[in-house]
Design a protein around this nucleic acid. Structure first.
Length: 284
DNA sequence: CTATAAACCTGCTGGC
DNA sequence: TGCCAGCAGGTTTATA
């Protein structure tokens, strides 16, 4: 699943590859991918614009065009954006862009959840409405995190997934950050101590930076801008490690469901002082 | 405010 | 071996 590191890695690759390239034409083969915009209007508007720079906000990949438009891409569950040689076929292509140098930029998405929206750069604020701070920005301090956690009693795992609280965390990195900080996923957000918040802040930044360094986590379908898998899966400690021994203490990793999401944690390293488990520990 | 569920989709897995 | 129900999860919307 593309979360912040997967989007950031692709953004950096495309910044090198795509800036200065001009879009010759666009073809939409699954209309809902571009939302409510008319297919023909989308194609006509994007054609002949040149890529000026690439950006990212949360899980949104931003392609700034010199005609004043921004292509904002959210890959959701299974979307990939990559540069493809002219001949190759991808059965899951939903939108394709032909570039002036003969290359093609493909948006491929088996489950069709992802969205490409073409917005005027002057309207970007509306696109970003409801997004919390960037977790790797300087302004994202432990104090900033503390402020946002203090106002809710929701489970910390659910709170970390809320894009209005922090932009860019998804199911994988939320679990990893909580493990890194030694915090149980069901702890109420407003119950964290100052020390725990500092640890969580550090954990969030650590797991995201590691994810970027290794090209993102490829478990299902994530691919980078060259259609290559990332290798961060080797650096995960709990996500989809159910039953496997914790790398720190050997206790089997447990899986529970929090806010309708599979949630993985180490019962020993992420102890639970305030939350009562649904299945109480068996005493011998 | 908070929680829960359904909808959007299809590939993949596990059970029989 | 083959079939199929159900799971996977980011986001929005609806409902309690």
């Amino acid at each position: 699943m593309p979360e912040l590191p997967e989007v950031e890695f692709v953004a950096r690759q495309l910044q090198t590859e795509l800036v200065g390239s001009r879009v010759v034409s666009a073809h939409v083969s699954w209309a809902r991918t571009i939302g409510d915009m008319d297919t023909r209007e989308f194609a006509e508007r994007v054609a002949r614009q040149t890529v000026r720079r690439i950006g990212r906000r949360g899980k949104l990949l931003l392609i700034f065009l010199d005609g004043g438009d921004v292509l904002a891409i959210h890959r959701r569950m299974s979307g990939n954006l990559y540069i493809s040689p002219p001949a190759t076929e991808d059965p899951y292509t939903r939108v394709s862009f032909s570039l002036d140098d003969g290359r093609r930029l493909l948006y491929s998405d088996p489950r069709k959840f992802g969205r490409l929206s073409l917005v005027a750069e002057t309207d970007l604020d509306a696109t970003f409405a409801g997004l919390g701070p960037e977790p790797l920005a300087r302004e994202f301090t432990p104090d900033a995190l503390a402020q946002r956690l203090a106002t809710t009693k929701r489970a910390i795992k659910a709170t970390l997934l809320d894009q209005a609280v922090i932009a860019g965390l998804g199911n994988i990195y939320a679990d990893e950050a909580l493990y890194c900080a030694g915090i149980h996923p069901l702890r109420p957000a407003n119950s964290l101590t100052r020390d725990e918040i500092v640890a969580l802040h550090g954990g969030i930044q650590t797991v995201l930076e590691t994810g970027i360094r290794y090209g993102g986590t490829t478990i299902g379908r994530h691919r980078d801008a060259f259609n290559e898998a990332g290798t961060n899966v080797a650096h995960l400690n709990v996500y989809q490690h159910t039953g496997q021994p914790c790398r720190r203490c050997g206790t089997p990793i447990r899986r529970i469901v929090v806010a309708q999401r599979g949630t993985h944690y180490c019962p020993h390293c992420q102890p639970d002082s305030t939350v009562r488990e649904k299945r109480p520990a068996i005493r011998e």
